[in-house]
Structure formats: C-alpha cells, structure tokens
Design a protein around this nucleic acid. Structure first.
Lengths: 308, 308
DNA sequence: ATGAGGGCATAAGCTGTGTTTATGAGCGAG
DNA sequence: CTCGCTCATAAACACAGCTTATGCCCTCAT
C-alpha cells in the first residue's frame, strides 16, 4: 500500500483521519458530563455498545486512554480531561457553524429574517443565533449578509425583519439602536518592536507607517481612512480578514483589524494590541429596522440577546 | 420512522448530522483557496469525482449553494464565503486538538518531552505545537500535564525536556524564563451593573463581593486568595473553568478567571472585563528546565516560539 | 447469601457513506 | 479542430459505525 504522495510521516494523512469526528467528540463530552458510557449513549441517541466501541476506537486513534472504566461508571483520565477540553472547543465551533448554516438555509419561508454586514455575520451572529435557539428552539431564522446598503435595501423591501450594520452612519429610512462597539485596533506580532513600546502610538505615527490592510472599499478600511483623514498607507493590501491576520502573525508588519476578528489571537499572544492616541477607531454596531416598524416577536428577542 | 425521542424538530438529530465532517470542511477550504474542485481534491488526496460528490452532498446537507461551478473553475458563492469562514474556525479548533493529541500520544519514545501546567496545556500549548510542527514537521512531541510540583518532578527525573508553570514561584532546582503574563480578570455578563461602571473596582470591593470561583486548591483560586489576602468570598464554587464561564455568562454574578480562558467571550461581548485597582492579579507564565541543562534542539525551538 | 440492576465488553450481521475507476460533456486556447 | 482544463455521472467496492443479543463484573438491598 502506498500512502498518498504528499505525506508527512506522522500517522494518518489528513486532519480528518487524525481527529475523531464530531459525533465522537460530542459523545466524549457527554461521558465527561454524565460519568457513564451508557448514559452518554442514551443522551446522544445511540446504544451503549455503540458508545463503548466509539470511545474505544477514539482511544485507539489518539493512542491515549481517555476514560477509566469501572463497574460503576466511567471517569475521565487526566489525559482524557485535557482532550475533552480541546474537544469542547471543536464542538463549540461546530455549533456556531451549525447555527449560522441553519439560518442561511431557511432563506425564504421563515419566521425571522436577518440581514447583517459581513463582520457581524461572521463573528457575532452565530453566537447570538445559538442563544436564540436555546430560548426559542422552534424559531427558524434566515440570514443574508451584505454591506450596509444591501441590508437597508432588504429591510425597506420587507425582505428582512431585522438588520445589523457597522457603518458610521445609519442608512436613511431606518431606525437604529447601538448594540455594541467595535474598535479597530492596531496589532503586531509579539516580536515586533512596537510590542515593547510603553507609550501609546500617536495618530501621525500610525498614518506615517505602512500597514497591512484590507483592500479599499472594505468596511474596516473605510473607517480607518476616515479616522486618519484618508491617509492610511498600505504595506500590503489583502482581500480577507484572515489573510491580514496571517500576515500580521507572521511578522510582516502592523495590521489594523476589528477587535472582533482577533480576540483569540490576542488571548493566545500570537498578536499584541498597540494603544493609539487621538484616533477615533471606535465604531458603533447597530441593529436597524424600517422607521416605525419596531421589532416584535423573535426579532425583539434576538435584539435583546445582542444587548446582553 | 420515528425520530429519536428527545428531538428538536429541526432537520437532523445531532450536531454531527447537521454539520459536515472535518474532511468536507477541509475540502471546502481547499476549494476556496485554490478555486477548483479538482485541485482541491488533489490537495486533500482524493480524486476529483469524490470531491465533486462531497461538496455536492455538503450543499444538500446545508441547503445552500456553496460554489459556482464553471467550466474553468469554481468560485465560492456569497453564502459559500460565509460558510467557509465558519468552517475555518472549526478546522482551526480541530488542528489545535490534533496538535495536542499528537503530543499526548507520543508518551515514551519521543524527541521532545514537554510538561506543562493545566492552563498552559489547555489554552496555549496546542497553538505552540502547531507552530512548532510548521517549522519542524518531523519532531515528535510528548506532553504531560500536571501542577507545578509534578512538572518539576518530571524535569528533575529527566522525564521531560522542557516545562511550563504558572505558579508564583519557581520550584527549586529549576532555571526559568518568563514567556508571558497571565492576568486574572474580573468578568461579568454585559447586563451586570458593574459593566456600566466608569471607575475601576477597588480591591476591598472585590474582596467584599461574593464571586463565582474555581474550587480552593485550583491554581487560579490560589493566586486570587494570595492577592486578596485569603479573603475571596465565594458565591458559587465550581470545579471547571468552563462551568465558571457558563455561570458568569448566564449572569449569576462576577467571576474571576484567567484572561486566557475568556479571550473569545470578551471579543464576542458575552462577558466584559472589569478593571480592578490595587490588586496584583498578574502572574508570570514561565518556561522551566533543570538548572544547568539549558534547552537545546527542539526544546530551544519551542521556547523561542513561545516568546513570539 | 442471593438476586436485581447498573455498568461495560464482545460477537455477528446490516446499512450507508465515501471512495475508486471509467467515461462523457462543456468551454477556451493554440 | 483538437488538446487541455474544468466538472458530472455511473457502477462497483470498502469500511466504519450502528443495532441486537449476549455475557461478565460489581454493588446494593433484601
């Protein structure tokens, strides 16, 4: 047997071969919580032997014992506890994926139709939808993502019940409320000289430094240009937030990004945030709806969730 | 046909049935990056028809068109771009899982043996291991997680090459270097009155308020008690960081947690951080090794990665 | 003691999903 | 017009995971 041509010598080719599937991870979380294979099996809707076999094959795959089986239950081993924590993050990401996808699916015939700008749809909405589903499991939500103008258009055409925008101004014909603030922040890799500054950056310094930026026309770029007076100087222009992050992490230079996009990178210290003086990089995130049409029902509920 | 007994009426029972598996998500990312089903298929090591079928079944599962097929390539639809971003987060979590698990597996016979405290093993190490693997794909890493004493023991018994501890003091017989700082932070749900404070919290106020805490004996609890002079007043005591987070998010009260544990919650505004005056909640994260035995080879490399 | 019940493991058989190989059809470039 | 790229379809195969049917071990209560 050949392994496929491009190959690391580690066991199993692709990620999917080395990482248990979501069902197995969910099962593991259930075992951790319930302390019994059988009970966990019941919870996820399979039989006890299936659970037993699945956990066993997961242990074989990882090469580590995860649970201590005893005649009166199963507890996690030390390694199992660690693995379970990592598994939880995968499952959480999958839940966010699911919440978003479910909303995306129910395009036409659904109760609550949401239109949101990209940043909000990408980073915030999945979490809100998760919370909404916890409260009202039977509400079908549909989601359309676009820029502020598109959001306004949908609302005014009565093709959406609630919108979210991140622009500086509220489109005409819409009422709005501020639900959160997004700041653009300057980030650098920890090795960058700026990471060791003790004083905040001055606006002029920022304007004078070539930066890793999104392309002109993107929302974050507009805000930055406005704040600096159209002066932002690009070192590289990239077309996705992810690409900008990757460049910054690899040390190419300072980047300016929504803090929503780099929460994890900051916590993990793959990037550090540099304070800036004298620039208004804060922008409002607003919920919007057609003037007069106060949100009701599910829309109202979602709105209240977003305000925490 | 019955659906299983406990059931939301949404399509598909469990998460695993509604979310494509990791292989499919990886494939989607490859398509997004390469702009062609065939090329993506090659990259993940399957044939073109398999990729075609897999993407198609993913579209069926999600009920949304993800890619625009044309005779000269495939580009993502708008919905596809959104889904791809969510998928990326799942895959990243899976990569971290994999990096950790791989290290956990290679217990005995490996090149680089790392011992780390729980918080570090849980939140930071997977990322570092990912970076290390990018630089030296053939280095097998093993990981043991435990408290500071256990880490020191392993190092001194020459059962580990490099350790990471988060204690206040460095165990005897070890040299160390500070690689990062972890702060304990006070967090509350956005609806909590403290979220609207304008002045930092005073130490006495914190000590006087019942808090959601980890159990006595846990690392974070020790640090907090030390900082407050043994005075921390528990509202609830929970045995896992995750449970503490969940309680805080649901509004049960203020919690004190490592900022590493709540990076995402802060970015998403599910929690907000409350500044505190006059308490040293900062603690050093240190790399440690037996006095004299300066880290070399892979250990040195990992060490340099941790310092960014 | 002894049986009931909860817990886990093993064995055998089935099903479904994803895979491969083989082939065809659209479109653009030389 | 034909080569080369793209993607789609069809048929056969493999394997992973499920279920049902057992059995063993341990504990607790009678």
């Amino acid at each position: 047997m050949f392994m496929s041509e491009t190959e690391d010598r580690a066991a199993g080719g692709t990620l999917a071969h080395r990482v248990p599937d979501l069902g197995a991870l969910e099962l593991l979380l259930a075992v951790a919580r319930l302390g019994s294979l059988g009970a966990a099996a019941r919870e996820v809707g399979i039989t006890q032997p299936a659970a037993s076999s699945r956990i066993r094959s997961m242990e074989r795959q990882l090469g580590v014992a995860l649970v201590d089986r005893s005649p009166r239950g199963s507890r996690l081993t030390d390694a199992g506890a660690l693995v379970t924590d990592w598994a939880r993050r995968v499952v959480e990401a999958a839940e966010a994926f699911d919440a978003g996808a479910q909303a995306l699916r129910d395009r036409r015939d659904s109760r609550l139709r949401v239109a949101a700008s990209m940043t909000i749809a990408e980073y915030l909405l999945p979490g809100w939808l998760l919370a909404l589903r916890a409260q009202r499991p039977d509400t079908a939500v549909s989601l359309l993502a676009g820029n502020s103008a598109a959001v306004a258009e949908r609302l005014l055409a009565d093709e959406a019940d609630l919108g979210f925008v991140e622009g500086l101004s509220v489109p005409q014909g819409l009422d709005s409320t501020v639900i959160a603030h997004d700041r653009l922040i300057v980030v650098v890799a920890p090795a960058h000289p700026w990471a060791r500054r003790r004083r905040p950056l001055a606006a002029e310094e920022l304007a004078a430094t070539p930066l890793i930026l999104r392309e002109r026309g993107s929302g974050t770029r507009q805000v930055l240009d406005a704040a600096l007076g159209g002066l932002a100087r690009p070192l590289i222009e990239l077309s996705s937030t992810t690409a900008v992050k990757a460049s910054a992490v690899s040390g190419a230079g300072p980047a300016v990004l929504s803090e929503l996009a780099v929460g994890e990178e900051l916590a993990m210290r793959r990037l550090v945030s540099i304070p800036v003086d004298g620039v208004a990089l804060r922008r409002d995130l607003r919920a919007v709806w057609p003037t007069g049409h106060r949100p009701t029902g599910p829309a109202r509920e979602l709105l209240s969730l977003t305000r925490g």
